[in-house]
Design a protein around this nucleic acid. Sequence first.
DNA 1: AGTTTCGGCGCC
DNA 2: AAAGGGCGCCGAAACT
Length: 563
Amino acid sequence: MSDRWALAPAEEGGAELAPLGPDGLPAGPVVKEPDLVTAVRTRPQVARWVWRATGEVYPRLLDAGVRVERCYDIEVAENLLLGHEGRLGEPRSAAAALARLRGGPVPPDPPQRSAEPGSQSSLFEPRPVHVPLEQLIEVYADQQRRHDATAYPERVRLLTAAESAGTLVAGEMNTSGLPWSAEVHREVLHELLGERYAGGGEPKRLAELTDEVSAAFGRRVRPDLPADVVKAFAQAGIKVKSTRRWEIEAVEHPAVKPLLEYKTLYRIWVAHGWSWLQDWVRDGRFRLEYLPGGTVTGRWVTNGGGALQIPKVIRRAVIADPGWRLVVADADQMEPRVLAAISRDPGLMEVAGRATDLYQSVSDRAFAGNRDQAKLAVLGAVYGQTSGDGLKNLAALRRRFPRAVAYVDDAARAGEEGRLVRTWLGRTCPPAVGAADSGEEAGIPQDAPPVEAVDTEEWVPGYASTNSRARGRFARNFVVQGSAADWALLLLAALRRSCSGLAAELVFFQHDEVIVHCPAEEADTVVAAIREAADLAGRLTFGETPVRFPFTTAVVECYADAK
DNA sequence: AGTTTCGGCGCC
DNA sequence: AAAGGGCGCCGAAACT
């Protein structure tokens, strides 16, 4: 029995299936089954399901209580491979891949869907272009060859597998939802915002603050309108360019204090207030929708509900079921550790080989013990700080950790020059518009075909219009943030595996943080599983290095108690 | 009236 | 002290 099977949904809930050989081609006849769920459920020996897109198949399986161990998502692979080939502007659907393969007209990708509160089946909505099984397998077999054609096939294969695993995790988390107490959420809102008035107007506390701001200016001011606030300050003889917090904070005026408080509370009211609760929480769960690989760097995004931007005060509403716990695990200083692993800087790897405070260790070596300076320098190197004390600190960092700084500097230069830049596992950063490939690349070295001049504006909004220095900063950050995302995918995949025999389930993932919801008696097992998964992910992603990836973990009933 | 962009701020 | 990366979301403003 083959361990890899291809599957495509057929009409009326059925499915077509075929076992695959080592070359990715069919190792047996196509089987037609009347029921897709049964077809999968009755083949537990299949180690990896190959399908067009997890979002097309998996929600249906999960609704029927069927999970699969592994999958290969053809459209995920297509996206990664196109990037690798310097063809990121081309349509990435399986139908498009097939058309390229056969020389037909290439259909454009269906448009992105916008958020819609509470829509569970939304992963189905962008009308999947049906590709029959035989043709799907053609695309798959070709993708195997394209993986082989890359300079580091094992890395790109790992990335495809990891991102495919990510789609499974996302599907499962979308199905389970995040435990959420609407009651506690309402208590928090009432505490912060006060009475809620009929008609949807400002709640009591915001109305009071509006009055305070107005009184301080001596006229009626709407604190939620930046233009109004700028004008009011001007009339008071104070010039401000904007009403951004950091700019207002520097101003001395009686309106500042109530204004800043207003901004904080207003934000909670509009983004995570009563109407949010109404829209996104059902049956004790926040129904979020993860989109793996939704960003250029490989970080995930969520669709609707702002699930990755939950304000800290609102986290009080995230509460485990009775008798259950939340295991909240947060990677410690992930980005500098990733920088150590990808640059192989001996000094930084040594520092990142300890579980102790990384910034303190860096400061002991390069900043005479000043931790704040050390942290600023490291983040400046990663984010591309170009002015102020950041530059001075960066110079100090460069003296002690030359390879680490050179790594991100190289990426920045490559970005400025419009060359391809890749993460450790080979996710590709888009080149600049009209850039001709000059052969060398940053990130993992490889021999790529020439980069075509493509209109990047289409798939990276704002990208074409930014200047080359901005592209440099983008590329500099990309290699670190993106390689961190590579690692995080492997972490999720490993953690998912070790939770598979437990009642525990992953319910939240935010770049470098996970939450597992589990029976209280499983909590210790889960904590250990997270540590093991982090180590395994580090080895699988970056190979054998001294770098460790420690987590701060907390077993709590309420998310807010984790920190 | 409907759609897109902007300003501001939440998270990492 | 000041301004560098990635996102999503909201209402208002600016458009068509």
